[in-house]
Amino acid sequence: MNIVFMGTPEFAASHLKALVESGVKVIGVFSQPDRPKGRGRRVYPTPVKSVAEVYGLPVFQPEKVNSGEGLEKLKELSPDLIVVVAYGKLLKSSVIDLPTLGCFNVHASLLPKYRGAAPIQRAIENGETRTGITIFKIDEGMDTGEIALRREIEIEISDNFGSLYEKLERLGREALLDFLKIAEAGRIELCKQEGAPSYAPKVQASDLVISDFSDAVYVLNKVRAYDPQPGARTSLDGKMVKLFGAAFSDRSYGKSRDGEIVKVEDHGMVLSCGTGNVIISLVQLPGKRPMSPKDAVSGWLIREGMILGG
């Protein structure tokens, strides 16, 4: 099969690398245009572009792919199948109807749950215990197409965004290679998405803020969902601090207020969170690197009795 790959971030780049190293015939790679990043606004290639260049694959970065030069290039390539992984653009019928076998997307959730841009973070944030990879045939909706293949895994209480990302990235690569074997054999079987859909909108700055410490489960999941990047945050003594490494504590520390640092121990600081206590193993204050709460206490940056979120 002649395959065109579409993707942009690291998650997609690892899938492209897996395809090439498995001998899949990738005839072209489409990625978002390179954008300026960071304080210096330096322009960096997208991770997918970087992988494509390592393997000598032709790369195209049109502003528009559903019309104009982007669409014309796709027509020239005449792919049998288009594989999409976190491309960042919705495809229209002009592209969807182009390949003989169709366009298929690798999505990091069990569709129809968590359609959208941030399925990994939202699943953790909402306390899900299962997630997975869905490969579906793209239609003009947002992650609404018929399912071709699905793989499921457990979300462990110890998982954060970083660890679950790695698990789903690995599962996605395996699932994609399995799917392409099925496609090459002409055995694609599609089924409709079943159940009520839910959505995973792009993460906004306001999503990262914890202002309510009355529910231990809520606080735990919020920290896990944005650990290690970009970090859940809350106010402390008039400053915004980031919290990492959350876990439940089953110890009792007596009467305390929601969000209070009731104890600082070797393994972290214990927060009173209404329905229980949550241990935070790393804290990052403005202008500082993440540090243990004990080091923060030694540096007179935090102390027991302080209130977070107030």
Score class of each variant (00 low, 15 high):
127 G>E: 06
127 G>I: 01
128 E>L: 08
129 T>V: 12
129 T>N: 13
129 T>G: 10
129 T>A: 14
130 R>V: 11
130 R>Q: 15
131 T>A: 09
131 T>P: 02
132 G>M: 06
132 G>I: 02
133 I>W: 12
135 I>H: 11
135 I>G: 13
136 F>M: 05
137 K>A: 11
137 K>Q: 15
138 I>H: 09
138 I>M: 15
139 D>F: 11
139 D>G: 14
139 D>C: 13
139 D>W: 14
140 E>I: 06
141 G>S: 13
141 G>V: 07
141 G>H: 13
141 G>F: 06
141 G>A: 11
142 M>P: 09
142 M>T: 06
142 M>R: 05
143 D>V: 07
144 T>R: 11
145 G>Q: 08
145 G>E: 05
146 E>A: 12
146 E>K: 15
146 E>Q: 15
146 E>Y: 11
147 I>F: 13
148 A>M: 02
148 A>F: 03
149 L>G: 09
149 L>F: 13
150 R>P: 00
150 R>L: 09
151 R>K: 14
152 E>A: 09
153 I>Q: 15
153 I>G: 13
153 I>S: 13
153 I>K: 14
154 E>L: 07
154 E>Y: 07
155 I>N: 01
155 I>K: 07
156 E>N: 02
156 E>W: 08
158 S>M: 12
158 S>Q: 15
159 D>P: 03
160 N>P: 05
160 N>E: 03
162 G>S: 04
162 G>W: 00
164 L>H: 01
165 Y>H: 11
167 K>V: 01
167 K>Q: 09
168 L>P: 15
168 L>T: 10
168 L>Y: 08
168 L>D: 07
169 E>T: 05
169 E>C: 10
169 E>D: 12
169 E>F: 01
170 R>N: 12
170 R>F: 10
170 R>Q: 12
171 L>Q: 14
172 G>L: 09
173 R>F: 02
174 E>V: 01
174 E>M: 03
175 A>I: 01
175 A>F: 00
175 A>T: 02
177 L>V: 04
177 L>T: 07
178 D>T: 10
178 D>I: 01
180 L>V: 14
180 L>T: 07
181 K>F: 04
182 I>A: 11
182 I>M: 14
182 I>S: 10
183 A>M: 05
184 E>S: 12
184 E>D: 11
185 A>P: 00
185 A>K: 03
185 A>S: 10
186 G>H: 04
187 R>T: 05
187 R>Y: 05
188 I>V: 15
189 E>A: 10
189 E>L: 04
190 L>I: 05
190 L>K: 01
